[in-house]
């Protein structure tokens, strides 16, 4: 069984009458890249702030590396690295001196960790340039350098690619994947740039209105979002037989709403229509179905809104 790195149970945070996080229970296991998906204000940052100790929950429990007492959690947090909201550093110090400040504070004995972290994020050439003169991309890189400086077992990254240009996003993605694959870091990452998240996450947690509405593995999501040809006819049973007999369709299934989903003929739907019409089966709908992460999320959240409104 995989080791549980982070577990929250019924975690709740309220600001006045507004519930930012509502009874949220998530579980992150070792080696995972857990992507938190949610729109702005869904509760992602509040959840990550509670996990990293910046905000205290009103109810519920957090267990980090199987420790859940306040002192245990604090010691467990020394095994994490975080970027919560915008990376913040002392503006009058250079990248190296900022990291030296935190190296002393964190009691890391080997000063070489600074050079190694800066090399990893590609920030070795900034010299005496002060943090206040850094571009957003450089700030994000320095944030990641600090997060990995103590060789953490869990990285908590809150919208780390916000504001980066496409090149910067790709480089950041590669760095995260390297940390996961080469250094064995478990990663909890939130983003609303779903196209980026979909390229790295191994598990997704969908959040809406402070609640976790679905947890799904990347493989499970891929299966759910698989592209297929959706066919609706007047006689489903006969249509299935015709498609099997005349078009040799083997990968098909019928949904509860009597729609036929074909994994074949995606590029030639006219062949399907012609065959059905030739066999006197009325066709009411033929279209490609399947979703990407963004569409899946919109459908999920849209469905929630629909349910809430009803």
């Amino acid at each position: 069984m995989s080791e549980t790195i982070l577990k929250t149970e019924n975690l709740t945070k309220k600001y006045g009458s507004f519930t930012a996080v509502d009874s949220m229970s998530i579980q992150v296991t070792k080696g995972e890249i857990y992507g938190l998906v949610g729109k702005n204000g869904a509760g992602k940052t509040t959840l990550l702030k509670m996990v990293s100790g910046l905000s205290l929950p009103d109810a519920g429990e957090i267990a980090l590396f199987e420790k859940n007492s306040p002192a245990g959690l604090n010691s467990a947090r020394a095994r994490t690295g975080c970027i919560i909201e915008t990376p913040s550093f002392l503006p009058y110090l250079s990248a190296e001196k900022n990291l030296e400040y935190y190296r002393i504070q964190r009691g890391i004995r080997n000063p070489r960790c600074i050079r190694k972290s800066l090399e990893f994020v590609g920030l070795t050439d900034t010299g005496k340039k002060k943090f206040k003169s850094f571009s957003l991309g450089m700030k994000q890189r320095l944030g990641l350098a600090l997060a990995i400086m103590s060789s953490p077992d869990l990285l908590i990254l809150d919208e780390p690619i916000n504001g980066l240009d496409p090149m910067g996003m790709a480089e950041f993605r590669e760095m995260i994947l390297r940390l996961n694959r080469e250094h064995g870091a478990t990663i909890l990452i939130s983003s609303h740039i779903l196209s980026e998240l979909s390229q790295i996450a191994t598990t997704y947690g969908f959040i809406n209105g402070g609640r976790l509405i679905e947890t799904i593995s990347a493989a499970g999501l891929k299966q759910k979002c698989k592209r297929s040809l959706k066919v609706k006819t007047g006689d489903t049973e006969k249509a299935v037989n015709v498609l099997k007999r005349e078009l040799n369709c083997t990968h098909l299934h019928v949904s509860d709403s009597n729609a036929i989903y074909l994994d074949e003929y995606l590029e030639a739907p006219e062949k399907v229509v012609n065959t059905l019409v030739k066999n006197h089966i009325p066709v009411s709908e033929v279209r490609q179905s399947g979703l990407n992460l963004e569409e899946y999320f919109i459908e999920l959240v849209g469905g929630m809104h629909h349910d809430e409104n009803n």
């Binding site: 100790g53 910046l54 306040p70 604090n74 947090r77 994490t80 913040s88 503006p91 103590s150």
Partner: peptide
């Protein structure tokens, strides 16, 4: 200054009470 520059979060998130 650390409060203003939001750098206290780097200390607290590392497990300092």
């Amino acid at each position: 200054e650390e409060n203003k520059e939001h750098t206290l979060k780097n200390t607290v998130s590392f497990g300092f009470s």
